[in-house]
């Protein structure tokens, strides 16, 4: 009898909210955004999502087997990376592009650092930015949204609202009519763009679910979106001919996907709430700088990756103030 007793340090009970549980909640929260993508982009979107998720799982298992580490695909983190990567790519991406992205995300973004918890940069964003720089044409060929039965047929391609703004600025030196779009379209998702970024509403719904489940805190999404809104609003008031409305900036592009799902990645964001506010404000500023004056129409991915690099530094200066310590 006595030999069967387990002895360990306290506490002896543990929350059921482990890593697989957290990853499941993130996947649930991403489902509305992914479904809107499927609704407007049809079968190709389903193909991209499935390919990306299964490729990430496969690559993770294979890498871990090759380097002789325990295979941890059951923790769900590779599936989340796969889903996020798919949602960050054009819905019409070729199979090889998706597979290459999955390999980059898992191997270069995650496993070379030692796997989950040790990666300094968001794996899905590492892959997306790699593809964007290496295959700029393929990564900016945006199929246009069509209502579901139609979306089964071949689609036409076109520009995103942010892309049109940039083209107008480069061509005419002003935004002209390109800033006049019906904002309900990007809010609901009837717009060109990456597979999972088109509907601000669906992403906000998923994000609120994560906040309610206490998996993310409100700090990063709220501060990130607010920073973008305030800065773009400022420039729009100064010169509406050069700069688009803040409402366009917060509904279009990857901001909602980035603010709720990419910047909030636990591993690559600061650990304290004060740190998260600084991090999110930095993301917002860099995003606005790239969108308004940079060469790329969209800056969310770059902004988050740059701020990921600063996380250790932010953590260092935002340690919690201990109970009973000097305030």
């Amino acid at each position: 009898m006595e030999n069967k007793l387990t002895v360990s340090s306290s506490p002896h009970i543990h929350t059921p909210e482990d890593i697989p549980w957290i990853m499941r909640q993130v996947i649930y929260a991403l489902i509305p955004g992914a479904l809107i993508g499927v609704y407007f982009f049809g079968i190709p979107a389903i193909k991209v999502i499935l390919l990306s998720v299964f490729m990430c799982l496969g690559v993770e298992a294979l890498t871990q087997k090759l380097i002789g580490k325990p295979i941890t695909i059951r923790d769900g983190s590779a599936a989340v990376t796969g889903l996020l990567l798919a949602m960050n790519m054009p819905s019409g991406s070729a199979w090889w592009l998706v597979m290459l992205g999955a390999c980059i995300a898992i191997i270069l973004g995650k496993q070379v650092y030692g796997g989950l918890g040790n990666n300094p940069f968001n794996p899905a964003l590492v892959a997306r930015v790699f593809l964007l720089i290496a295959f700029p044409v393929q990564m900016t060929t945006w199929p246009q949204p069509r209502v579901f039965p139609l979306s089964l047929a071949d689609t036409t391609t076109g520009a995103t609202p942010l892309g049109s703004l940039k083209t107008a600025i480069f061509t005419y030196g002003k935004i002209g009519d390109s800033g006049n779009i019906a904002l309900m379209d990007p809010f609901l998702g009837n717009i060109g763009g990456s597979l999972g970024e088109i509907s601000a509403l669906a992403l906000i719904v998923g994000g609120i679910y994560l906040i309610m489940k206490k998996i993310i805190s409100w700090h990063i999404p709220v501060v990130y979106v607010a920073t973008v809104f305030v800065l773009t609003c400022l420039f729009w008031i100064i010169n509406p001919g050069m700069y688009a409305s803040p409402f366009l900036h917060i509904t279009c592009g990857g901001l909602m996907l980035g603010a709720f799902f990419m910047a909030t990645d636990m591993v690559t964001s600061p650990i304290t709430n004060r740190g998260k506010i600084i991090f999110a404000a930095g993301c917002g500023i860099i995003t606005v700088v790239i969108r308004l004056w940079g060469g790329y129409p969209e800056g969310v991915s770059f902004a988050i990756l740059i701020m990921n690099g600063l996380v250790p530094l932010i953590n260092r200066y935002t340690q919690p103030i201990k109970f009973g310590g000097v305030k």
């Binding site: 989950l116 918890g117 650990i271």
Partner: peptide, 12 residues
Amino acid sequence: YTACIACGRCVD
């Protein structure tokens, strides 16, 4: 146990 994922729950 596995590596810390820096979720910050212990800090909160």
